[in-house]
Design a protein around this nucleic acid. Sequence first.
DNA 1: ACCACTACTCAGTGCTACTATCTACCAGTA
DNA 2: TACTGGTAGATAGTAGCACTGAGTAGTGGT
Lengths: 110, 110
Amino acid sequence: MGTKQVTEMLKGTLEGIVLAILAGRPAYGYEITAWLRDQGFTDIAEGTVYALLVRIEQRGLVDVEKVPSEKGPPRKVYSLNAQGQDHLNEFWRTWSFLSERLEQLREGGS
Amino acid sequence: MGTKQVTEMLKGTLEGIVLAILAGRPAYGYEITAWLRDQGFTDIAEGTVYALLVRIEQRGLVDVEKVPSEKGPPRKVYSLNAQGQDHLNEFWRTWSFLSERLEQLREGGS
DNA sequence: ACCACTACTCAGTGCTACTATCTACCAGTA
DNA sequence: TACTGGTAGATAGTAGCACTGAGTAGTGGT
């Protein structure tokens, strides 16, 4: 995706994406970035993910644990807590709402 | 939608929504705002829509015609042009990409 | 004259993703 | 030893977009 359309569209959704990842399994920043790039978000900047993780940690949506790595500096492993799960549920509701409106529009109805 | 989740999520998508509306029929700002509110975007601010319309006009995605109104000041009626249609197509591609990733995530698969 | 509805404009604010750069740990190699 | 590359994280500054809040106008009804 060459343009910056996806950049603007990610605002608000990237947080949900990361929370959804963490709902599946605990993960650390470098790993999440790599996974996103693998999934086609080729332009995701590392800084973006780290900043987002700091944000959701400060909001108390995740628990953090420092885990040593064999390959480099220690990892900060994030896992979703109950509050984060609530936030994720709310995210899915909002996403569904938006998604339905857009699907309706795509089919050319007013 | 009480929270501001939808506010952030609209960044990038609201432009596509408005272009999609204009793909169906020409429209003016007040009308678009009213329609959006009717569709459930109850918190959409008028200023937001007007600013967006100015933006897409400056980018040359729409043609504008001033039409007198019986009920108030003249209306600025916007209609999608060829460049706007291209942009809309690109929007749908980006949206589809994002939508597919999220649908995948929702089904809990990594 | 006043009010309500229609219709558009604009300065200032907050949030989020990007850019660019930095620190730091470890392994392999010249 | 010194150097490179992959791993792992942090951060200051920038840009874009939606929101807030206020304002300007035109029309019609009381």
